[in-house]
Amino acid sequence: MNFRQTLTHGLWRDLPPFRMVLGLCPTLAVTATAENGLGMGIAVTFVLIFSNMFISLLRKVIPDKVRIASYIVVIATLVVIVELAMKAFFFPLSQQLGIYIPLIVVNCIILGRAEAFASRNPVHLSMADGLSVGLGFSISLTLVGSIREILGVGTWFGMAVFPDSFEPFGFMVQAPGAFLCLGLLLGLMNAWSRRRGEFFIQT
């Protein structure tokens, strides 16, 4: 892949979590509101860019046998930094996201990109890949969060979008709504890809 392709592949071709089915837990868990989704997306993007950078820098130094362990140390360090930074600058958001911030550490997207991309590509490409996949993930999370918040609470980023007579269906902000919303979105995405003759997920 050249630089431009690397920079854009995460936005549609491999858009997580729809076309690269990884990282479902945060997609379901923190998307009750658009704001939480966006916050989580940005946190993941930060970790992705820098974990890809460090792993790419160290790819010739790290022996093959301990590579997963080394990746985990690098990723976990970055996650702790994000955790502390969120507490210091976005305290209410960090309370909202709760244990899902430390759980970024086991988000398969990050380890997946480290193993599949950063460990065999130069630094600038790896960082571009991290940025692209991270942005794609943020967009997806914000999208799912927006749908759930608009339908479930009747607001978008906390602003009312419906007149008072609208009765929000609280189902959407609870667990079943999360699964249903993501499943239907995935189906829509597949239908669209199929129409355009692109590959789509069918496993």
Partner: peptide
């Protein structure tokens, strides 16, 4: 290698 990575982190 692991030791160096851990101490840096």
């Amino acid at each position: 290698v692991l030791g160096v990575i851990c101490s840096l982190s």
